[in-house]
Amino acid sequence: MSRISPAHALLALAVVAVWGTNFVVIREALDALPPLLLATLRFSLALVPAFLFLPRPRVALSNLAGYGLLIGAGQFGLLYIAMNGHISPGLASLVVQTQVFFTIGLAMWLTGERLQTFQLVAVLVSAAGLAVVGWHTDASTTVGGLLLVLGAAATWAGGNILTKRAGSINMVAYVVWSSAFAVPVLFLLSLALEGWDAMVAGVRQATPGVWVAVAWQSWANSLFGYAAWNWLLSRYPAATVTPLALLIPVFGMGASAIWLGEPLPAWKLVAAALVIGGLAINLWWPRSAAAAAPAAGDPVR
């Protein structure tokens, strides 16, 4: 089965919408909580009580620990710090998608594969979009914020490599149990860098809405998102499902503009078009080339 049903397409769209709009939710939670404490709470709720009901996946502890550290302390730790006044939510949702190219680079470095022409074109197109963002840094988007989100994308890519090495496993259980390694590191980093007083003050001033935001990231973004997305990937070819991920920054930038009033000047739209365009080239070029090539046994005309 390669053509996705309308019901399953809506499920995929719901996941992408949750992942994209989550950048606005993060921004709301950061109004009360220090970024590393927010990450600690997010992964704590992802771990407890779910680990009581999900058996530990059959994967090496080193793999689980590596994934937890890369995604917890790496991806979300850096992303939350960046979004705490260093980059707007909409641009963060766009820039972090460069994880695709970091994943390609890591895979090539580990396997010795060479960069193909279409991949080079895709990287250059997206890099042009990042250059547009870098050229327009200001009070809402700094060079430091851009670099932090690129760091988050790079550590996300490392997590992708570990996920691939883990093989066919229950991805929800994998995310839940890897959180056990993320939580203590994030807590210690928060304690060292943000301080006990700031941590206590953040918890005390957190409104019910802030706790809903934390729960949303843990349960909707992590558990529902991974469960639904991987269920779809188990039923359909990856080439059928993964193109919908290109809508994540669309939802992210749109939600940021609607709910937070983030402006969308022409340069942001150009940057978004270039980054998403590069991702699209990387995704669709092999499929287009395969479709254009004569099938095996067909006469060459």
Rank of each mutant, 00 (worst) to 15 (best):
S5F: 05
M199P: 07
L274H: 08
P237G: 13
P299Y: 02
L115G: 07
G112M: 09
G20A: 00
W229C: 04
L54S: 14
L279D: 05
G74Y: 12
N230S: 06
V203Q: 04
T21G: 08
T141H: 08
A206I: 03
N84E: 07
I81N: 01
F102M: 03
L37T: 05
D138E: 13
S178E: 02
G278N: 10
F43S: 04
L147V: 15
T142V: 14
G68A: 12
F101R: 10
L283W: 02
A92Y: 02
V15P: 00
S222L: 11
E113C: 07
W211F: 13
L150H: 02
S93R: 05
S93Q: 03
I258W: 13
V241M: 10
G159N: 01
T111K: 12
F251E: 09
L30G: 08
D298E: 15
T142N: 07
G202I: 04
A46T: 15
T98M: 12
W219F: 15
I104G: 07
L283C: 03
V132Q: 13
I161F: 01
L269I: 13
S178H: 00
A295D: 11
S62T: 13
F181S: 03
Q75S: 12
I4A: 05
A154I: 03
V149F: 00
A50K: 00
L78T: 07
M83R: 05
I161D: 00
G90Q: 08
N282M: 08
R58N: 11
G297C: 12
L41P: 03
A173P: 04
V59P: 05
W229R: 13
L279G: 07
L61M: 09
T163Q: 11
V270F: 15
A9C: 06
S234K: 15
I81K: 04
L70S: 13
G151H: 01
E262A: 07
Q75T: 15
L79S: 15
Y174P: 00
V183T: 05
S62M: 04
G159L: 01
Q119V: 09
P208W: 14
D298T: 09
P286T: 06
D31N: 12
A198W: 06
G202D: 03
A295G: 10
T103P: 05
W109I: 08
V149T: 04
P6Y: 06
A213Q: 07
S234M: 13
V176W: 00
L47F: 14
P49A: 13
V172T: 12
S288R: 15
L247T: 03
W216P: 02
L130W: 13
R301S: 08
L11S: 11
P35M: 07
V18M: 07
A29W: 05
L283N: 09
V214Y: 10
T242E: 09
V15L: 04
S44M: 10
V18P: 03
A245F: 07
M83P: 02
W196F: 11
T142C: 15
P208H: 11
S140C: 01
K268E: 15
N63Q: 14
D31W: 06
V125T: 06
D197Y: 03
I281Q: 04
L36M: 07
T21F: 05
P243G: 12
A60L: 10
G134R: 13
A127T: 14
N84K: 11
K164Q: 11
W216S: 09
W285M: 15
S140H: 09
M1Y: 10
P294T: 08
Y67W: 14
S288I: 15
P55H: 11
R204Y: 04
A227K: 06
L260M: 09
